[in-house]
């Protein structure tokens, strides 16, 4: 079914439209397929980029330059091991321990290394805190820089041309598309990741968390809130 993601040819925003529509369509197709076992309402021809990737992997493997099992391991790492739960763990600690919070805002790197959250695309982390006065959000207008060891692989919208082009110019409008509306007195700070510094947003702590266990706090912290595009879940 993944092979039906084939329409990426009409510009990025249109592609995202097609994408969303394609997803809906795929769900419909799966349902239809389940109902009519003998009929195939979609075709099995793989998409062009899927075939290109396959071809490149085959050539590189035969050249002895890559090992497909290493690729499996990379995918498994980012699919199952490194993701926003790491960042949420850090945020939960900052919410519940004021010394940790102060040290994190001062220099996050030694603390993160101690927690084991270090590595590719997270060598230099700066934590910034959202308050009533300042709302931080992160973008990379030139490519897609993102704190991988803390948040995993960036979501598609973060890598989209729409997010990259608009966030620096109209952050409040972009936030509204995530359902976030900020009061006028809150200053929005957009961090454009133009170097190897990666920014982690510490979202505003909800009231009434006193005495809550770290695990329960982690469940409140969304990925988007640590990019500064969403809010945490309410208690």
């Amino acid at each position: 079914m993944l092979a039906t993601y084939s329409s990426f040819s009409t510009g990025a925003s249109a592609a995202l439209n097609v994408w969303t529509n394609t997803r809906v369509l795929i769900n419909y197709m799966i349902m239809a397929h389940d109902q009519e076992h003998n009929e195939h309402p979609y075709n099995d021809l793989p998409s062009e980029p899927a075939l290109r990737v396959k071809a490149l992997e085959t050539i590189l493997t035969r050249k002895g330059l890559i090992d497909p099992s290493a690729l499996d391991k990379i995918i498994d790492t980012y699919q199952n091991k490194i993701g926003p739960r790491n960042g949420a763990h850090v945020v939960a600690k900052a919410w519940s321990d004021s010394n940790f919070r102060a040290a994190l805002l001062d220099d996050a790197n030694p603390l993160l290394a101690k927690l084991g959250y270090y590595g590719r695309q997270g060598e230099h982390i700066v934590a910034v805190e959202n308050t009533d006065e300042i709302h931080n959000m992160v973008v990379c207008t030139l490519c897609s820089c993102y704190p991988w060891p803390l948040l995993g692989i960036p979501p598609s919208w973060y890598k989209s041309d729409a997010y990259r082009s608009r966030t620096v110019r109209e952050p409040r409008k972009v936030l509204s598309e995530f359902g976030v509306r900020l009061p006028e007195y809150t200053t929005v700070r957009v961090w454009d990741s133009t170097a190897e510094i990666r920014y982690l947003v510490i979202p505003k702590c909800p009231t009434g968390i006193d005495g809550m266990a770290e695990e329960a706090l982690i469940k409140l912290i969304t990925r988007d809130s640590m990019i500064g595009c969403g809010l945490v879940k309410s208690l």
């Binding site: 925003s13 995202l16 207008t141 919208w157 989209s160 729409a162 997010y163």
Partner: peptide, 10 residues
């Protein structure tokens, strides 16, 4: 960065 015309973020 800043370009017009890209439509909504999804």
């Amino acid at each position: 960065g800043g370009r017009f015309g890209d439509g909504p973020v999804r």
